[in-house]
Design a protein around this nucleic acid. Structure first.
Lengths: 200, 200
DNA sequence: CCATTTATATACCGATAGGTACAAAATTGA
DNA sequence: TCAATTTTGTACCTATCGGTATATAAATGG
């Protein structure tokens, strides 16, 4: 069970956290491997030995981001007693996260690779798939609301999900552009005002 | 008045159009100067002689984008007889543009440099400023609506502008992720349903 | 026809990109 | 103690990055 060779001298999880912040700040293409290694406090061969390649490191960083910043959103969605309350809480959790002074601005899944060189298309598609899944989770929550009776049976779950996903993604841009937490909360207020019409 | 030396063998405007499409597709960092020159049908020295440097070429491309894709939005804003109608039309014009099969997906100002390497921060800030101006134009249109009596005097123009700017920016992400024109139009329907509450 | 001016294409610049070879160091099992 | 295994740091690889020197070609003014 014990490890055989020379033990790793750095904390893999801590290093991944630091890499995540660099990608979150600079984006996938804007973060160089040298810069990543420096921020992680290791040399490049250690980085490659532990994480494979730049793209694999990025995918692990996104997975970590999902666990740390995305999980509270999923919990809010699940915990809300109505679909409306759940989606509102999910948006508010995001609004706080996007403007948290301890974090880079906006959602890492939105800001780190919206466009890129042709050879990096897999990274862009990976993030797009990630965003699609967020919208899916909104849709499923609306479906659950219909099943539980807190959403009209005539509502179109896909339409509701598309609208609130659009607002959520837009919040990342506003956050990057310097909007305050209070400003984003007001945007959420506005978006929720459409609920009765959107989910009808 | 006549030009003195050897005449330029390419159409500067046509070349700028082609550069714009490359930046729009790949983003600022994802578009290499070699790739740009190839798409423009010229060699790199011609590119540098005509446009200065990569960043200047990008800024000219954004200006061209504003003239071609942005102008109809400004016209829609100005032409609408009410603030509500004007903003709705602006969003619909964008929804069409973002999903136009002849164009790359989404708004070039949103997708081409949301994050980047530290040395490219000026480009990111330039685009952020561009987006801020879009939001400003929404705000001014709401103020005009108050002055003309089609918006309640109690409305908060900044709040209305922030909400619709958020939706507009979110539309770019949805478009990049493959949403259809019809899907984006439905999102606009949903956003407009919030008007009475947001502008009150 | 010739000097001047500007654009062209080729070939190149130093710097950095992502990624790795290699030898020394640090651990384990025997 | 010693072979086997893994990590470490240095130094390096090729390819490409943004950008340019240079010589030639094509125009104008005189």
């Amino acid at each position: 069970m014990a490890e055989r060779g020379r033990p790793r001298a750095f904390d893999r999880d801590e290093a991944l956290h630091r890499a995540m912040r660099v990608f979150w700040t600079c984006g996938y293409e804007g973060a160089s491997v040298s810069e990543l290694a420096q921020a992680m406090g290791i040399n490049k061969p250690s980085l490659y030995a532990a994480f494979g390649c730049k793209e694999e490191l990025f995918r692990e960083a996104i997975a970590l981001y999902g666990r740390e910043e995305g999980a509270p959103v999923g919990e809010a969605l699940a915990a809300g007693r109505t679909a409306r309350g759940a989606i509102e809480m999910a948006l508010r959790v995001n609004a706080r996260s996007y403007t948290n002074p301890d974090n880079p601005r906006g959602c890492m899944v939105v800001v780190s690779a919206l466009a890129g060189a042709p050879e990096n298309n897999p990274v862009c598609r990976f993030l797009a798939e990630n965003r699609r899944e967020s919208e899916e989770s909104f849709r499923r929550r609306v479906e659950r609301g219909i099943a539980e009776g807190d959403v009209l049976a005539s509502a179109d779950p896909a339409r509701v999900a598309a609208f609130y996903a659009t607002v959520m993604h837009g919040l990342s841009i506003q956050a990057r552009d310097g909007a305050s937490a209070a400003a984003l909360e007001k945007v959420v207020d506005s978006a929720m005002a459409a609920w009765e019409t959107v989910a009808s």
